[in-house]
Computed example of a mutant assay.
Amino acid sequence: MRLAARGTDDLGRADQDRSAAFDLAGPRWDRLTDTDGKADVFARDLFALEGWASLAGQLGEQQAYAFAERTSLMWLRPDAFAAATARGVLAAAEAAGFRPLAAQPVRLERCGIRVLWAYMCRWATTERLMLLDALAALGPGLLVVWTAGTGSARAAGGEPVSVRMTRLKGRNDARRREQASLRAVAGSPNRALTMLHTPDDPADVVRELAVFCDRAERAELIRQASTHLAGAQPAAIEGAVRAVEAELPPLGLPSRHRPGRPVQARELFAGPVEARWAALVAASHAWPLLTRTPQAAFWPEQEMRSPWT
């Protein structure tokens, strides 16, 4: 069809259609996070904008806000599957009142690791980043979408579900971790092998949908989760769990004791998975994980937090 054959009304409607489908305005980020300054950062974050475009384009604006508030993500990392504790974490989350809505295996590559923790690794050493790369190279993890079992828009006390789940997750420092936390259930031994990741607030839920999933995967995950969110029954996620276990069988958490010599970096990336996992565990105890010269903060609250104090 020649463009000249179309009337001005047709062109106007076409422009409106393109805008509705592909140029969705970002949300009011201050509605999705209470952290001072974070809304301004996320308004310029490409993954945050992409995640919102998928949610709002698929569910509509108001339902997109509701989805972000009523759900949380959990990435059960490869170390949880290698340590054979992933199933225990899933059971503990359900026992704490959370209900799974959808799940799929997710493998993050080196760049995905850096994107996921772009705002949280300001204290990380280069050794810690190498350990994260080795972790990702072990195999896939499992991404699960959860809601609170109450079925309300927010968890008890008016909290978004992501805030409640992150509190249950527990600290990454094993010495200060609550004994009833999910990381305690997972047997996380230190700041490097934390076993699971959850978003801190609804803004992170939106952003991380785009970090973990491409466009087609994201659409299917949102479809499944929103369908189960409208009901009362948990989603069946056993098939997704088995798919991860088929690629990364449970190995158990090996002893940190490796007499004789320190771990060499090449041991983390070459050889059978059992040897790489043992080297990763040993290196996670021996290598420096925190720097005393952090990168610049992204929002004011980060300046007030230090893992050294």
Rank of each mutant, 00 (worst) to 15 (best):
M1R: 09
T8Q: 12
L11I: 04
G12Q: 09
R13L: 14
D15H: 11
D17T: 10
D17S: 05
R18I: 10
R18D: 12
A20W: 06
A21T: 08
L24E: 07
L24D: 01
G26Q: 12
G26F: 06
G26W: 07
T35Q: 13
D36A: 14
A39H: 10
A39Q: 08
F42A: 00
R44V: 06
D45W: 13
E61I: 10
Q62A: 14
Q62E: 15
A66Y: 03
A66V: 00
F67H: 10
A68K: 01
E69N: 10
E69D: 14
M74F: 06
D79F: 07
A82G: 08
A83Q: 06
T85M: 00
A86S: 14
A86K: 08
R87H: 09
G88R: 12
G88Y: 07
G88T: 02
G88H: 09
V89P: 10
L90F: 06
E94D: 08
R99I: 10
P100A: 04
A102Y: 05
V106G: 05
V106K: 02
C111D: 14
I113M: 14
I113R: 13
V115A: 10
V115G: 00
L116E: 09
A118E: 15
Y119H: 15
T126H: 08
R128E: 04
D133L: 00
A134D: 09
L138H: 08
P140S: 12
G141F: 06
L142M: 08
V144C: 08
V144W: 08
V145C: 09
V145D: 05
W146E: 03
W146K: 02
T147A: 15
G149D: 14
S152L: 11
E159K: 13
E159F: 11
V163L: 06
V163I: 11
M165Q: 12
M165L: 15
L168T: 04
K169T: 15
G170T: 04
R171D: 15
R175S: 15
Q179R: 13
A180M: 01
V185R: 13
A186P: 13
G187A: 07
S188E: 03
N190I: 05
A192G: 05
T194Q: 04
T194F: 04
T194R: 02
L196H: 04
D200H: 11
A203F: 09
R207F: 12
E208T: 00
E208D: 15
V211K: 06
A216I: 07
A216E: 15
S226M: 00
S226Q: 03
L229Y: 03
A232S: 12
P234D: 03
P234Q: 02
A236R: 14
I237S: 07
E238L: 03
A240T: 05
E245V: 01
P249H: 09
P250Q: 09
L253Q: 08
P254Q: 05
P259H: 13
P262Q: 07
V263R: 06
E267V: 02
A270W: 13
V273C: 10
E274W: 01
W277E: 12
A278W: 00
A279W: 08
L280Q: 05
V281H: 02
A283I: 03
H285T: 00
H285S: 04
A286H: 11
A286W: 00
W287Q: 01
W287I: 02
W287S: 03
P288F: 02
L289A: 14
T291Q: 03
T291P: 12
T293M: 05
A296Q: 15
A296G: 10
W299T: 03
W299N: 07
P300L: 04
P300H: 06
E303G: 10
